[in-house]
Computed example of a mutant assay.
Amino acid sequence: MVTPIKPGTDNQPSGDYTEVGPRGGTVPNARQVHIDQGDRLPPTQKSGNQWVKK
């Protein structure tokens, strides 16, 4: 299982990230974002949610 990453974390590998719940579960209407090398992960829709790399 992939470890979820908190929003606002920077220096993550570039690629596509999907929003997950606080314990790594799926969330309805999950956001999917693409970041480039050195970019910061954006805020999630709900406090406590995190990001995982696809």
Rank of each mutant, 00 (worst) to 15 (best):
T44F: 10
K6E: 12
K54Q: 13
T3K: 13
R31S: 08
P43K: 07
P28S: 10
G48N: 07
P22S: 15
E19D: 05
S47A: 15
P28K: 09
Q50S: 08
H34M: 01
K53G: 06
P22Q: 12
A30Y: 04
G24N: 03
V33N: 02
V33W: 03
R23C: 02
T44W: 07
Q50A: 12
R31M: 10
G8Q: 11
N49V: 04
K54L: 04
Q12W: 01
M1Y: 10
V52Y: 00
T44L: 02
I5R: 08
V2D: 15
V27L: 09
G24F: 07
P22A: 15
T9K: 13
M1D: 13
V2E: 15
T44C: 12
M1R: 11
Q50I: 01
E19F: 02
R40D: 02
V27T: 08
T3V: 11
T18Q: 04
S14F: 05
E19G: 03
V20W: 07
P42A: 08
D10K: 15
S14I: 00
Q50E: 09
S47P: 01
Q45H: 12
D16Y: 11
P7I: 11
D10R: 15
P28T: 06
G8W: 02
D10E: 14
A30D: 11
P42C: 03
D36L: 13
V33S: 01
K46N: 08
V52L: 03
T3L: 09
P4D: 05
D39P: 00
G8M: 07
K53T: 09
V20Y: 09
P28E: 01
D39L: 07
G8I: 03
V2N: 14
T3I: 11
M1S: 12
Q50W: 00
V27G: 02
Q37C: 01
V20F: 06
P43E: 12
T26A: 14
V33P: 00
G48L: 06
N29G: 12
V20P: 10
L41C: 10
R31T: 01
G38L: 03
R23D: 13
D10H: 12
Q45M: 13
T9M: 10
V27I: 10
I5V: 15
N29A: 15
E19M: 05
D10I: 06
P43M: 08
V27W: 04
V27C: 07
P13G: 03
G48Y: 02
S14R: 05
N11P: 00
K53E: 11
G8A: 09
L41A: 11
L41T: 05
G25P: 01
R40F: 01
T18R: 08
V2G: 02
P4I: 06
D16Q: 14
N49S: 04
D16N: 12
P4S: 09
T26I: 01
T44Y: 09
D39M: 09
Q37V: 01
G25F: 10
V27M: 03
K54V: 14
W51T: 11
S14Q: 12
L41W: 00
R23A: 08
S47E: 13
Q12T: 11
P43G: 10
K54C: 03
Y17F: 09
H34T: 15
G15K: 03
N29E: 13
Q37F: 06
Y17W: 14
P28M: 03
A30G: 11
Y17G: 01
G8S: 11
I5W: 02
G24T: 08
Q32A: 08
V52E: 01
G25K: 07
S14Y: 04
Q37E: 13
P43V: 09
P4W: 12
G25N: 14
T44G: 05
G21T: 08
D39N: 12
